[in-house]
Design a protein around this nucleic acid. Structure first.
Lengths: 197, 197
DNA sequence: CATAATGTAGACAGATCTGTCTGAAGGAGT
DNA sequence: ACTCCTTCAGACAGATCTGTCTACATTATG
């Protein structure tokens, strides 16, 4: 087979996940049909149904992949900082760097959740991601000495979600700076510290 | 016609808009087909295409109706308060009252925007609504004496959007209180005033 | 009464989507 | 060489969706 590299040919599962990630994230879960995914992946339709069982399970696997990637990215960004306060801000800075990517299309879980019917696999995946995010903010808020860590954690999550929405829907390149400034103010108000930075 | 009240029969256009509002908002624009809308409205298919021209225009009219309703509601809530600071908080309180409605399903513009292809009528409608909201927050921030009214206005919009998302996706009845507390802190930080209340 | 406008009921075309199934090709291990 | 297993290519069924069109009923007005 002259056309096939000897070094690497990703499995059908990997190619399907990569294609699903590109198409579902770019255009939405409902807008993209199975046929476009398998064509983009270079995979037969039977392989999709053998591997995942159906579209809903493929969507779930796509969201799980996104979940893992985002957890990795944010965990790394947090690990680079020393104090809980800086670690909270690092989450917003990492998010802000995503806004500049040409393929940025907002939070995959919010987008998928807005389309999906409640109670399905999509909502499960969204719950898992949002729960992780919420716990991260709350833990850092506690480590930073906030009087009410649950309150500050929730406030920061509202800000995080709102920033993702604004970056997606508004024509405004200042979202990252605005959300970081707001986070700084909320942290200062909740911890009694100064808001400089 | 014994089955028809003599006093009132809404026009086909009004019934279509009411049905579209209920179904599109509850289940999403893409999930609801034309047939379900006309059945729910008790209207013939030809009337829909005569009146609106197609589904996209019906969606646009649905969003315009939502826009007008929300502008009315928030304008009234703002008018009941005296100071710019209390007027900003009134926006969040009015939003928080929506969260308790059994049919609450988040922001119609964010939901529709997450499904729609960019550049269409839906994005136009979303831009119009978000622009109005942003200008309201910015104007109130200026009247409250914020050092940077654009910054505070944008921060409050992030919070507003995030609160809507969290109320839709999380199982948490404290969203309204959390967003109001965060707004209080952001206003205080931006105006130099105390954050009590 | 006559006419024009509006709405109703529903068949129909054309496209698209999910999911199933068949038959053949290719690679790995024995 | 032979067999097993994955994969490919694509036809196919069944459902659903948008949009068009025809034929008929209703209502207001000249």
């Amino acid at each position: 087979m002259a056309s096939v590299r000897s070094t690497a040919k990703p499995s059908a599962r990997e190619r399907l996940l990569a294609a699903a990630n590109e198409l579902f994230y770019a255009e939405g879960v409902q807008c993209v049909g199975i046929d476009r995914v398998i064509e983009h992946a270079g995979v037969a339709k039977g392989s999709l149904y053998n591997t995942f069982g159906g579209k809903e399970q493929l969507v779930r696997a796509y969201l799980d992949t996104r979940h893992a990637g985002t957890v990795d990215r944010i965990t790394r960004a947090v690990a680079e900082r020393d104090t809980p306060r800086e670690q909270m801000l690092a989450v917003f800075e990492s998010q802000g760097r995503q806004f500049d990517r040409p393929d940025f299309r907002g939070c995959a879980f919010i987008r998928a959740g807005a389309e999906a019917s409640p109670g399905g696999l999509v909502q499960e995946a969204a719950d898992a991601f949002r729960g992780w995010m919420r716990e991260l903010f709350t833990r850092l808020a506690a480590e930073a000495g906030a009087a009410d860590p649950d309150a500050l954690g929730h406030q920061l999550q509202l800000l995080y979600d709102g920033a993702g929405i604004s970056a997606l829907m508004d024509h405004d390149s200042t979202v990252a700076a605005t959300s970081r400034a707001a986070a700084t103010a909320l942290i200062a108000a909740a911890t009694g510290a100064s808001a400089e930075a």
